[in-house]
């Protein structure tokens, strides 16, 4: 049987999330046709740009006021309704995809493959377990495969294909707001690049000591045009907001350069960054576990090193 993949697009009604393009690239490795589903409000422009992504044959658009902030309760039935025509269902392993896809899988009575880092064939993938300390090669026996894709493990699909896919508007279904209703969101506003597009990530940990000192991390990030990350300890201590946490339960990043400042290197933190190309650790404790994964390690007082480093990087 030929594969046919439906990718669920993540977006904020204005922009396509970077991980959607990575998921589309993963979808192309399964083989077979790819369709994209966009559920939102005023998403004509997004549907249009998705139609220009390489490999996309069809864009399905569900556009209605009630889907401005769609919940999993809203979106899952739409996917189930379309499910007959597809063999594979993919979404990014972001909080969006992680929230939605298991609900879809259960409604289809199939398992889910979470956080896939490699697609070996149409039914076999590799995914990390135990905070990335082991990799499992898993074959699904289900008739339909539901997966979430780890963005940091895939390139982005090209967005300027010569062939444009058809865009089809679908009738919106009734909203499930009687079950779950969106109230509001508090977004962290930042001028810095987000994790999925940043080539450089600078992360700070408990070693910085205070929220004020954390500014050293931000200054270095700004100088290098990088994103700011944090360890759980730094988030729990209130230095930065939780959406900047890098690790097993936070964001998984794999930039060209990852600089860990005042981070000891707990298993849970390393799970989120150890696939970075070059890792630098700066820490006052020469025995910190982070030095085991660092390509370059500098032991010393952060408060002497950081101003000098900020000064000397180009």
């Amino acid at each position: 049987m030929d594969s046919k993949t439906l990718v669920i697009a993540e977006h904020d009604n204005n922009n396509i999330a970077a991980d959607t393009l990575k998921t589309l690239h993963a979808a192309s490795q399964i083989g077979g046709d790819i369709a994209v589903l966009v559920v939102g409000n005023n998403v004509t422009a997004i549907a249009e740009s998705l139609s220009k992504v390489k490999g996309v044959k069809q864009v399905l658009r569900v556009d209605a006021e009630q889907f401005k902030h769609p919940t999993a309760e809203d979106v899952a039935p739409i996917i189930v309704e379309l499910s007959e025509a597809f063999t594979h269902f993919l979404a990014p392993a972001t909080t969006f995809g992680k929230n939605l896809m298991p609900r879809v899988a259960a409604l289809l009575d199939v398992g889910q493959l979470s956080d896939v880092i490699q697609i070996e064939s149409s039914d076999t993938v590799i995914r990390p377990i135990y905070a990335g300390n082991a990799l499992a090669r898993v074959k699904s026996d289900d008739s339909k495969l539901v997966m979430t894709i780890r963005g940091s493990a895939f390139d982005s699909a090209s967005t300027n294909s010569q062939e444009h896919a058809s865009v089809e508007a679908l009738e919106p279904q009734a909203s499930q707001q009687t079950l779950a209703r969106f109230i509001d969101s508090q977004q962290t506003v930042s001028e810095r690049p987000d994790f999925s597009s940043a080539k450089v990530v600078i992360s700070g940990g408990r070693g910085l000591g205070s929220k004020e000192n954390f500014a050293l991390v931000e200054r270095l990030a700004d100088k290098l045009g990088g994103a700011v990350g944090a360890s759980r300890a730094a988030v729990d201590a209130g230095f930065v907001s939780n959406d900047l946490q890098v690790g097993q339960t936070g964001k998984i990043v794999a930039p060209e350069l990852y600089i860990a400042i005042g981070i000891s290197g707990a298993i849970q933190h390393m799970a989120g960054m150890k696939d970075s190309k070059v890792i630098v650790a700066i820490n006052s404790d020469p025995d910190a576990a982070i030095f085991e994964v660092a390509d370059y390690g500098l032991v010393g007082d952060l408060f002497e090193i950081m101003p000098e480093l900020i000064d000397k990087v180009p």
Binding site: G132, N133, A134, R137, K139, S140, D141, D295, Y296, L298
Partner: peptide
């Protein structure tokens, strides 16, 4: 079960790094 774990592997280990003595 719907899924067969065909193999569990250790992730590729990183080559040993080096320590540097100064910011320069």
């Amino acid at each position: 079960s719907r899924q067969q774990v065909l193999e569990v592997m250790a992730p590729k280990s990183r080559a040993a790094g080096q320590s540097v003595a100064s910011v320069d």
